[in-house]
Amino acid sequence: MARTSTAPTAPHDPKVAADVEAVIATLGGMVEAAFHVVDQIAGLVARQVGGPGARTRARLAGVEDLAGSYVGDSQHPVRGAGFVAAVGFLVDQPWWLEWFAAGEDGRSHRMVSQTDPDGAGFYDYEFLPWYVVPRDTGHRHVTGPYIDYVCTDDYNMTYTAPVVLEGRFAGVAGADVGVQTAESILMPSLRAASRRVAVVNQQGRVVASNSGRHLCGDLVSDVDVPALWERPSPALHVLPGLPLGVLELGS
């Protein structure tokens, strides 16, 4: 199953300004909260589906209550969570999303999607990054920000981790944090920073910033962020093992 430790935060660096370090810590705390949900779901799936017997959708019982306890909590940043089965892993549902999202009433609701390959609007998740990267690397991943046309029709970030049973990839456990929620968490520390700072993904797409020139969803154009990911820079503070970081844009 996926590892159960919390998401790592960047280690203290005496050369990092205190206000930037506060942004890094806030980002790390948000990521940790999301991956705590992911790890809880991964552990439940491993207990329910592991062991002898046919691996059926019915054995995912319990995911709804667990995911719903977070998704339905307005004080928690996660607004969607669940398990997405590896293609062919469940004998009665070759494609299956045991996924729950917050509705307009604030409560958790099952996400309904077309999982019949012959059906209209079939949702083929087999090639999407939040599924592919954990499957191929065996590690956690953060996808986004991206426009989620399936759940929210808004900017979203999806946190996923692989679930492996008896050496076989079983699927991914995941959690969604809306970018609007992420901004509300990150903005106090960003506003307190004395320099321009942005939270970015590995492609340089902005999650949140304190600069009017760098809005959510924008690609940073004045800095080659992918290159900085390859060549460590004092201006970029990456969360270990994850495609998220804090970029100093200057004073």
Rank of each mutant, 00 (worst) to 15 (best):
V63L: 11
R140W: 02
D154Y: 00
V150E: 10
Y159A: 14
V91L: 11
S189V: 06
M157L: 12
Y146P: 03
G178A: 14
G167P: 07
D92P: 10
G167E: 08
G138E: 06
G167A: 08
T181L: 03
Y159P: 05
V177P: 04
T143W: 03
G103M: 09
E64T: 12
S189R: 11
D116G: 03
V172C: 03
D118V: 00
S108L: 02
L97C: 05
Y123P: 01
G171S: 07
F127N: 07
P134E: 07
L165G: 05
M157E: 06
V87M: 06
M187W: 03
L66Y: 11
E104C: 01
S69L: 09
A173N: 08
I185P: 00
E64W: 03
A61Q: 09
Y146L: 01
E98D: 15
V197T: 11
L97N: 08
Y155A: 07
D148M: 02
E64K: 15
A102Q: 15
V142H: 03
E64R: 15
R168P: 00
S108Q: 06
G171H: 07
I185L: 12
V91M: 09
D148N: 10
R110W: 02
V87W: 02
E104V: 10
Y155R: 06
Q180R: 09
R140H: 07
R107V: 07
L128H: 01
L90V: 02
V132R: 15
R195S: 14
L190S: 07
I147Q: 00
D124W: 00
D118I: 00
A120E: 14
A175W: 09
G138A: 03
R107C: 04
V78Y: 11
G171Y: 07
A61M: 00
R110E: 15
A81E: 11
V177Q: 08
L60S: 14
D153G: 03
Y123D: 10
M157Y: 00
R196Y: 06
F100V: 05
S113K: 05
V112C: 01
D105G: 06
V163N: 06
D65N: 13
P188S: 06
W99M: 15
D176W: 02
V91D: 12
L186N: 04
